[in-house]
Amino acid sequence: MSDDGGWLNRYVNTLPERGWFQFLSKYVVVPYWVWREGKPKLPGGPRPSQQPSDSTQRMMNLLMPLKDPSPIGRAKAVMALAQNVDEIYAGLDNVGTVHSARFLLVEDYICMISVYDGDFSNYIRDFIATIGSVFDALMQVVEGGDKLAPCEHNVEAFIDWVRAHDLFQAPDFPIEMFGLQDAQVGKVPNHPPHALQTLPRALILQLHANRNISLGGGYRGYPGFSAAQIRQKLGVGW
């Protein structure tokens, strides 16, 4: 909000919305800061925690790049899933820790968005055990997937691959971004504290390293309850 700061002040206040300044920022200012203090990519998935509600309803946002993003390549990806719908539903029922899961085709990615309970690595292991054949079919249409099939013979490599393609989950409280960036380069988080004014830069540089991110941990209608607890309470199995 401007008061009587004169035309120059008013003009400067609108700089971030002006095309020429956005061009300058995109092609000069941001690359300069990336060169000067660029951030390493932050890992995907939920962060380790011992607390009970942190290990229920975890979010997975898996972005798998399509080998062939043309309509034919996309159709192959759709078919790989469409031909395995029964396997997916039966497998997820048997995993027992999944609240919801769905596949999306967005731009050049096939995405699996799911909500699950428990440890990430065990979730992927359960997946391989129950719907490994679906992922084998999927890996044929995904960039870099050839090396991973069959999943059951490449369990650890497959887990690493999924972790690398699961989106970084931005902290629920913005100020925690500083600490995550410190920890990623081996520094003690917030020692010394960062200047508050530098938070926009920290975010911009992180978004340069992690182009796609999950915005926070996500909303939960009934947080802290596992799929098994809900099923038991509702009398629908397990």
């Binding site: 909000m1 700061g5 002040n9 700089l15």
Partner: peptide, 18 residues
């Protein structure tokens, strides 16, 4: 303010009138 933008920081908001 320009210096702030070039540092990828937000300037302090202008004081309200009065």
């Amino acid at each position: 303010k320009i210096k702030d933008y070039l540092r990828l920081q937000l300037p302090m908001p202008d004081p309200y009138p009065g």
